Amino acid sequence: MDWLQVVVLAVVQGFTEFLPVSSSAHLILIPALTPWNDQGLAFDVALHLGSLLAVMACFRHQIIAMLQSSLAALRGRGVDTEARLALALVLATLPVCAIGFVLHDLIEGQLRTTPVIAAAMIGFGLLLGYADRGEVGQRDEYRVRGRDIAIIGLAQALALIPGTSRSGITMTAALLLGLGREAAARFSFLLSIPVIILASGMEILTLSRQTAPIDWATLLWGTALAGISAYLCIRLFLAFITRLGMQPFVVYRLILGAWLLWLFYG
């Protein structure tokens, strides 16, 4: 990999991981639409690690509070709002783990195609636009109910389809259930932590079986650039989402989806 490819892939991954535009679709499309070869599993792991470090840095105080409350609850000291939120994140992660395990080969093979990505970009983009129409709800992430957890968890499993966007579909579900824009974004970002940890763990296991040499300098640069980009993205998104809403991302998804269809069928 040359350095231009490292920078482009890392910055694209960092910015799109937490925007409702599908980072996986962009990472699939970049090598498909450029002369660059596929970046490989090791670099994908590095980019996801950078995104994980970024979201944990952004929400470090909330994460520490959830861990402390969860440990206190396990010791029989009662369950407070932080412990309930931690439990909600764990439960909402279960559907994507189960479905991803069962349908792994289908997802990694037949679904990683340009028409599927384009259709998901357009279809789920329209759904996001519908969820964000007019006035949205006002509930925060601490007031999610059992039904909300189940629906958001099942919605997250749809993100296994390339082009859907994990953050996009979970924000869509949260908005439809009555959460505010910032609350939907925060819950989605926190929900990414267990998902990225589990997905990266599986990738590392696969990587450990390979014998090819590893370019550690490239991986470290990719991790750092993806982490910085993702951190800036989260901060900017939370700062402006209440005023901007989701419609700019809906327009982007529709344009990109239509362009991909034109490239494939035109």
Score class of each variant (00 low, 15 high):
2 D>E: 05
3 W>T: 11
3 W>L: 15
4 L>N: 00
6 V>C: 13
7 V>S: 07
8 V>Y: 07
12 V>N: 10
13 Q>M: 14
15 F>I: 15
17 E>C: 06
18 F>C: 01
18 F>I: 09
23 S>A: 12
24 S>F: 08
26 H>G: 13
27 L>C: 11
27 L>Y: 12
33 L>A: 11
33 L>G: 08
34 T>I: 14
34 T>V: 15
37 N>F: 10
38 D>A: 13
41 L>E: 12
41 L>I: 15
43 F>W: 12
47 L>E: 14
50 G>N: 05
54 A>P: 05
55 V>H: 01
59 F>Q: 05
59 F>P: 05
60 R>A: 11
62 Q>S: 15
63 I>Q: 04
63 I>S: 08
65 A>D: 10
65 A>F: 00
67 L>W: 07
68 Q>D: 14
69 S>T: 05
70 S>K: 06
73 A>E: 11
76 G>R: 05
85 L>P: 01
85 L>I: 01
87 L>H: 00
88 A>Y: 10
91 L>Q: 03
92 A>L: 08
92 A>C: 12
92 A>P: 07
95 P>K: 01
96 V>C: 06
98 A>D: 02
99 I>M: 11
105 D>H: 12
107 I>P: 05
109 G>Q: 10
111 L>Y: 04
111 L>K: 00
115 P>F: 13
123 G>K: 02
123 G>N: 02
126 L>K: 06
126 L>S: 09
130 Y>R: 01
133 R>Y: 05
134 G>I: 14
136 V>R: 11
136 V>L: 08
137 G>D: 08
139 R>D: 02
142 Y>F: 15
144 V>F: 02
145 R>P: 00
147 R>D: 07
149 I>P: 09
149 I>Y: 11
149 I>W: 10
150 A>T: 12
152 I>N: 06
153 G>L: 03
159 A>N: 13
162 P>D: 11
162 P>C: 14
162 P>R: 05
165 S>E: 12
167 S>F: 13
168 G>Y: 04
169 I>Y: 04
170 T>Q: 01
171 M>G: 01
172 T>L: 12
175 L>H: 04
176 L>A: 06
184 A>F: 11
185 A>V: 09
185 A>K: 00
189 F>P: 04
190 L>G: 09
190 L>W: 07
192 S>T: 06
192 S>C: 09
194 P>M: 04
195 V>L: 15
196 I>A: 10
196 I>T: 13
197 I>S: 09
198 L>V: 15
201 G>L: 10
201 G>M: 04
203 E>L: 13
204 I>N: 03
207 L>H: 10
208 S>M: 13
208 S>C: 09
209 R>Y: 13
210 Q>F: 01
216 W>I: 14
217 A>H: 04
219 L>D: 04
222 G>W: 01
222 G>T: 03
228 I>V: 15
229 S>K: 03
230 A>L: 05
234 I>H: 02
234 I>E: 04
234 I>Q: 03
235 R>L: 10
235 R>I: 07
242 T>I: 03
242 T>G: 06
245 G>H: 10
247 Q>N: 11
247 Q>F: 15
249 F>N: 08
250 V>M: 01
254 L>Y: 08
257 G>H: 02
258 A>F: 15
260 L>W: 07
261 L>A: 11
263 L>R: 13
